[in-house]
Structure formats: C-alpha cells, structure tokens
C-alpha cells in the first residue's frame, strides 16, 4: 500500500484551473522530485497533499487516512478539522520562505508543536530539539532568533522544526529558492542525508542536480498535468516528451542562451548610442 495516493486531483482558483486531474502514488521511503516551469501547478499540488490548499476535485489519501474525496455527484467531502490536524502531525512541511516564528529562538521554534500538539514534556522536547539542531549543523545556534540567522540556517531550523514531529512524510516547497545560491548547498546536503536515512520526501525544486542525484523518481508537471514521470535518470537524461525536453533544455543548457544574449546585445550597441547629431543626418551609416 502506497503511503500517498492521489487520484484525479483538481484545483481551480476562481476560473483558473491550476490542476487539471493529477494522479500519483508515493511509496514509503521514496524520494520524488517534482519539476516544471513556474506556474505549472507543482507548488499547488504539493500544498494539496496536507490540505493547505483545498482541492476542488479528486481524492487524497495519506498513510491510510482519506483527507478528501470527490463524491459521485461531484461535491467534495473533507476529513473533519481534528482528523486533518491529526494527519498533519505526520506530514512535515518546509516552505520556500522558511516561515519560522520570528519571536521565538531556534529551540523554541522546534519545541512549540511537539509540546502543543503531541503533549511532549518540555525537557524531553528541548533535548530532542538540541539533537535535531545538531543534526542539521546548528547545534550552537539554539538560542538565536530567526533574524539573527542566514537564510540557509533559517531553512535548516525549519527542517528541524518539521522533523521534531516525527513525520512519516516530508514536503519541500522550493526550499532553496529564497536563499543566496552559495547557501543552497547546506540545505540540499541536509535533505540528501534525510533521504539516505529513508525519509519519504516530496520535493518541489528547481535544483536539477538534486533531482538527478537524490530522487528515485521525477514528476514533470506542465499546465496542471503530469506530463512525464519515471526514474530520475530516464526523465532527466532521456525525456520522451517534447515539453519536458524544452523545459530541461532551458534549465540545463545555459551556455547557448548566453551566446544568444551576446548576439542580441551586439545588435543593440549602435541603437543605444544614438546621438542627436546622428538623427536626421546623413543615411550613409546604414
């Protein structure tokens, strides 16, 4: 039985259909990278898995709990509030913009939910928080406030915060997009180690290197549909679909693009230096 079962997932915002029927399963211990152009619906799809977005159609089941289901007449039934909270306890999520609680230290960020939601005694939660911060390389930063940390450090605290709930599934939503490129590595390293330890992970990302190296499977989404999916090596190196090829070409082959820019720029140089005396003057320049 797969850990995550999504079928016929649809989501529209007003008249815009963002997801147009998505089906996929995630097995326990599997790491899946979700790639696709911006606006393709990949983030919306991820946010549906823990019902931060409420689907307008389809069925989502996580760890044998049905979170939402479309009825025969097309209406949606959702699990009740308590059941959704119960499910979320087991689904960790890491956001693009960290969303750490800015008025709490790193340790306080990590222990808040275990104490409030799972009634873990404070000393126990604190000891575990220190272990987790140690594991993400921030053992010395426990008393720091979020604004005293770099983006990469904040994101690692956010990962520790999610792990403190002992999740069976982790959702990562473009977690390196808001940090300086040189700090992305430290986050990806933590994620890679997590994958090696057998965590089930759904990772929306632009980092093709991570997808190639760590992911078991890659889903390529475009225009609200899964266009292509399969083992990372197949999809990334041998895409069968034209749209996948075009996307990977644009993301991976930067060099030809730079050449194009140079070419275009050369054509512009003269135009940018138009001088008054040249306007309306003799035409022999052309």
């Amino acid at each position: 039985m797969a850990l995550v079962n999504v079928s016929g997932l649809r989501k529209s915002f007003g008249k815009t259909d963002v997801l147009k029927g998505v089906d996929f399963q995630v097995e326990r211990g599997e790491v899946i990278s979700i790639i696709g152009p911006s606006g393709s619906g990949k983030t919306t799809m991820l946010r549906c898995v823990n019902l931060l977005e409420r689907p307008t159609g389809g069925r989502i089941e996580v760890d044998s709990r049905v979170l939402c289901e479309e009825q025969a007449n097309g209406s949606m039934t959702f699990a009740d509030k308590a059941a959704i909270r119960e499910a979320r306890e087991h689904i960790g999520m890491v956001f693009q913009r960290f969303n750490l609680f800015p008025h709490m230290t790193a340790v306080e960020n990590v222990i808040e939910a275990p104490i409030a939601v799972k009634n873990v005694p404070k000393p126990e939660a604190t000891a575990r928080a220190h272990e987790l911060l140690e594991a993400v390389g921030l053992g010395h930063k426990g008393d720091s406030y979020p604004m005293q940390l770099s983006g990469g450090q904040q994101q690692r605290v956010a990962i520790a915060r999610a792990l403190a709930m002992d999740p069976t599934l982790m959702l990562f939503d473009e977690v390196t997009s808001a940090v300086d490129p040189e700090l992305a590595g430290e986050i990806l390293l933590v994620m890679k180690r997590l994958a090696e330890q057998g965590m089930t992970m759904l990772v929306v990302t632009h980092e093709m290197g991570f997808a190639a190296e760590v992911a078991d499977r890659v889903l390529f989404i475009d225009h609200g549909r899964i266009v292509e999916q399969g083992p990372a090596a197949d999809v990334l190196q041998n895409p069968s679909h034209e749209r996948t090829k075009a996307f990977l070409h644009a993301v991976l082959d930067r060099a030809p693009m730079e050449a194009e820019v140079e070419e275009a720029a050369e054509g512009l140089v003269d135009d940018l230096l138009v001088r008054p005396e040249r306007i309306g003057g003799d035409d022999d320049g052309s």
Binding site: L52, R88, I91, F95, N99, F101, H103, V117, A162, M165
Partner: peptide, 24 residues
C-alpha cells in the same frame, strides 16, 4: 506564512492565535 506553518504543524487555531499570531 505564519498561519500556514502553524497549520502544517497540526496546531489548533486557538493555540497558534495565542502563541504565534497575537505576540507578533
């Protein structure tokens, strides 16, 4: 994002209003 992070951690609205939203 503060509401979302709290929701994703399974906190009740009553709890995160008091501990996360109101203090900020």
């Amino acid at each position: 994002g503060q509401h979302e992070a709290s929701e994703a951690l399974g906190m009740t609205k009553r709890h995160y209003m008091r501990r996360i939203i109101v203090p900020q």
